[in-house]
Amino acid sequence: MPKIEFIDPKVERQSGEIKLDPIPVNQYSKSIEDEKLNFTKDEFIRIYRDMVIIREFENMINDIKIKSEYNGIAYNHPGPAHLSIGQEASAVGMAYHLDAEDYIFGSHRSHGEILAKGLSVINKWNDSQLMEVMKGYWDGATLRPVEKGIRAR
Protein backbone atom coordinates (compact mmCIF):
# COMPACT_ATOMS: atom_id res chain seq x y z
CA MET A 1 0.00 0.00 0.00
CA PRO A 2 1.36 3.40 -0.87
CA LYS A 3 0.28 4.56 2.58
CA ILE A 4 3.20 2.65 4.11
CA GLU A 5 5.63 4.48 1.85
CA PHE A 6 5.86 7.44 4.17
CA ILE A 7 7.10 10.59 2.50
CA ASP A 8 9.10 12.15 5.28
CA PRO A 9 9.88 15.84 4.84
CA LYS A 10 12.97 15.45 6.98
CA VAL A 11 14.38 12.92 4.60
CA GLU A 12 13.13 14.55 1.48
CA ARG A 13 14.59 17.92 2.35
CA GLN A 14 18.07 16.62 3.15
CA SER A 15 20.82 17.90 0.91
CA GLY A 16 23.04 15.52 -1.01
CA GLU A 17 23.79 14.51 -4.61
CA ILE A 18 22.87 11.82 -7.06
CA LYS A 19 25.73 9.56 -7.96
CA LEU A 20 25.43 7.64 -11.17
CA ASP A 21 27.16 4.39 -11.79
CA PRO A 22 29.53 4.35 -14.76
CA ILE A 23 27.79 3.27 -17.95
CA PRO A 24 29.72 0.56 -19.81
CA VAL A 25 30.48 1.31 -23.46
CA ASN A 26 31.72 -1.46 -25.78
CA GLN A 27 33.44 -3.28 -22.95
CA TYR A 28 33.55 -6.65 -24.64
CA SER A 29 37.10 -7.54 -25.54
CA LYS A 30 37.27 -11.30 -25.93
CA SER A 31 38.83 -13.07 -28.88
CA ILE A 32 37.56 -16.18 -30.62
CA GLU A 33 40.21 -18.08 -28.71
CA ASP A 34 38.77 -16.79 -25.44
CA GLU A 35 35.28 -17.77 -26.51
CA LYS A 36 36.23 -21.29 -27.45
CA LEU A 37 35.35 -22.15 -23.86
CA ASN A 38 31.82 -20.93 -24.41
CA PHE A 39 31.02 -22.03 -27.97
CA THR A 40 31.42 -25.26 -29.86
CA LYS A 41 32.66 -25.28 -33.43
CA ASP A 42 29.13 -25.82 -34.68
CA GLU A 43 27.91 -22.93 -32.62
CA PHE A 44 30.57 -20.62 -34.02
CA ILE A 45 29.66 -21.65 -37.53
CA ARG A 46 25.94 -21.40 -36.92
CA ILE A 47 26.34 -17.79 -35.82
CA TYR A 48 28.02 -17.14 -39.16
CA ARG A 49 25.38 -19.07 -41.08
CA ASP A 50 22.50 -17.20 -39.47
CA MET A 51 24.07 -13.86 -40.37
CA VAL A 52 24.57 -15.03 -43.96
CA ILE A 53 20.97 -16.23 -44.25
CA ILE A 54 19.65 -12.88 -43.07
CA ARG A 55 22.04 -10.97 -45.36
CA GLU A 56 21.12 -13.03 -48.40
CA PHE A 57 17.39 -12.85 -47.67
CA GLU A 58 17.59 -9.08 -47.55
CA ASN A 59 19.89 -8.85 -50.54
CA MET A 60 17.27 -10.78 -52.44
CA ILE A 61 14.51 -8.36 -51.39
CA ASN A 62 16.76 -5.44 -52.25
CA ASP A 63 17.31 -6.88 -55.74
CA ILE A 64 13.60 -7.51 -56.17
CA LYS A 65 12.82 -3.94 -55.17
CA ILE A 66 15.54 -2.34 -57.26
CA LYS A 67 15.91 -4.69 -60.24
CA SER A 68 12.69 -6.71 -60.05
CA GLU A 69 14.72 -9.90 -60.17
CA TYR A 70 17.10 -12.01 -58.11
CA ASN A 71 19.47 -14.47 -59.73
CA GLY A 72 17.24 -14.57 -62.79
CA ILE A 73 13.99 -14.98 -60.86
CA ALA A 74 11.78 -12.08 -61.82
CA TYR A 75 9.25 -10.58 -59.46
CA ASN A 76 7.73 -7.22 -58.76
CA HIS A 77 7.01 -6.39 -55.13
CA PRO A 78 5.10 -3.13 -54.82
CA GLY A 79 4.89 -3.14 -51.03
CA PRO A 80 7.28 -1.86 -48.40
CA ALA A 81 10.65 -3.40 -47.52
CA HIS A 82 12.72 -1.68 -44.88
CA LEU A 83 16.02 -3.51 -44.88
CA SER A 84 18.67 -3.90 -42.21
CA ILE A 85 21.62 -4.98 -44.34
CA GLY A 86 24.63 -4.48 -42.09
CA GLN A 87 22.78 -5.11 -38.84
CA GLU A 88 22.87 -8.91 -38.93
CA ALA A 89 25.30 -9.36 -36.04
CA SER A 90 23.03 -7.38 -33.73
CA ALA A 91 20.02 -9.48 -34.66
CA VAL A 92 21.75 -12.82 -34.37
CA GLY A 93 23.47 -11.82 -31.14
CA MET A 94 20.21 -10.57 -29.66
CA ALA A 95 18.40 -13.81 -30.47
CA TYR A 96 21.16 -16.28 -29.69
CA HIS A 97 20.11 -17.09 -26.12
CA LEU A 98 16.40 -16.72 -26.71
CA ASP A 99 13.98 -19.63 -26.90
CA ALA A 100 10.32 -19.67 -27.96
CA GLU A 101 9.18 -18.66 -24.47
CA ASP A 102 11.16 -15.45 -24.86
CA TYR A 103 9.22 -12.88 -26.82
CA ILE A 104 10.58 -10.27 -29.15
CA PHE A 105 8.64 -7.31 -30.43
CA GLY A 106 10.00 -5.38 -33.38
CA SER A 107 9.88 -2.35 -35.56
CA HIS A 108 9.38 -1.57 -39.23
CA ARG A 109 12.94 -2.85 -39.84
CA SER A 110 12.78 -6.28 -38.28
CA HIS A 111 13.10 -8.95 -40.98
CA GLY A 112 16.53 -9.75 -39.58
CA GLU A 113 15.25 -10.03 -36.01
CA ILE A 114 12.40 -12.34 -37.04
CA LEU A 115 14.79 -14.64 -38.89
CA ALA A 116 17.43 -14.56 -36.17
CA LYS A 117 14.89 -15.41 -33.48
CA GLY A 118 13.34 -18.12 -35.63
CA LEU A 119 16.72 -19.64 -36.41
CA SER A 120 17.63 -19.61 -32.74
CA VAL A 121 14.45 -21.45 -31.79
CA ILE A 122 14.79 -23.94 -34.65
CA ASN A 123 18.25 -24.72 -33.41
CA LYS A 124 16.98 -25.36 -29.87
CA TRP A 125 13.95 -27.45 -30.75
CA ASN A 126 13.80 -31.11 -31.61
CA ASP A 127 12.21 -32.45 -34.79
CA SER A 128 8.85 -33.37 -33.33
CA GLN A 129 8.44 -29.96 -31.68
CA LEU A 130 9.19 -28.30 -35.00
CA MET A 131 6.94 -30.59 -36.98
CA GLU A 132 4.04 -30.10 -34.61
CA VAL A 133 4.19 -26.34 -34.91
CA MET A 134 4.75 -26.29 -38.66
CA LYS A 135 1.93 -28.76 -39.33
CA GLY A 136 -0.42 -26.96 -36.99
CA TYR A 137 0.12 -23.48 -38.29
CA TRP A 138 -2.82 -22.55 -40.57
CA ASP A 139 -3.34 -26.32 -40.82
CA GLY A 140 -0.03 -26.70 -42.60
CA ALA A 141 -0.75 -24.14 -45.32
CA THR A 142 2.65 -22.50 -44.87
CA LEU A 143 4.48 -25.79 -44.59
CA ARG A 144 3.05 -27.58 -47.64
CA PRO A 145 4.70 -25.54 -50.41
CA VAL A 146 8.05 -25.86 -48.65
CA GLU A 147 7.74 -29.61 -48.25
CA LYS A 148 6.79 -30.02 -51.90
CA GLY A 149 9.65 -27.79 -52.91
CA ILE A 150 12.08 -30.04 -51.09
CA ARG A 151 10.75 -33.13 -52.82
CA ALA A 152 10.93 -31.38 -56.16
CA ARG A 153 14.59 -30.57 -55.73
Binding site: P24, V25, Q27, F39, I47, A89, V92, G93, Y96, H97
Partner: peptide, 13 residues
Protein backbone atom coordinates in the same frame (compact mmCIF):
# COMPACT_ATOMS: atom_id res chain seq x y z
CA UNK B 1 25.11 -0.37 -21.49
CA UNK B 2 26.36 0.19 -24.98
CA UNK B 3 27.36 -2.96 -26.80
CA UNK B 4 29.21 -3.33 -30.07
CA UNK B 5 26.49 -4.76 -32.25
CA UNK B 6 28.98 -5.26 -35.07
CA UNK B 7 30.50 -8.14 -33.17
CA UNK B 8 28.04 -11.02 -32.83
CA UNK B 9 29.96 -12.45 -29.89
CA UNK B 10 29.85 -9.15 -28.01
CA UNK B 11 26.10 -9.03 -28.59
CA UNK B 12 25.62 -12.63 -27.50
CA UNK B 13 27.64 -11.92 -24.40
Amino acid sequence: ERVDGYNPLAMID
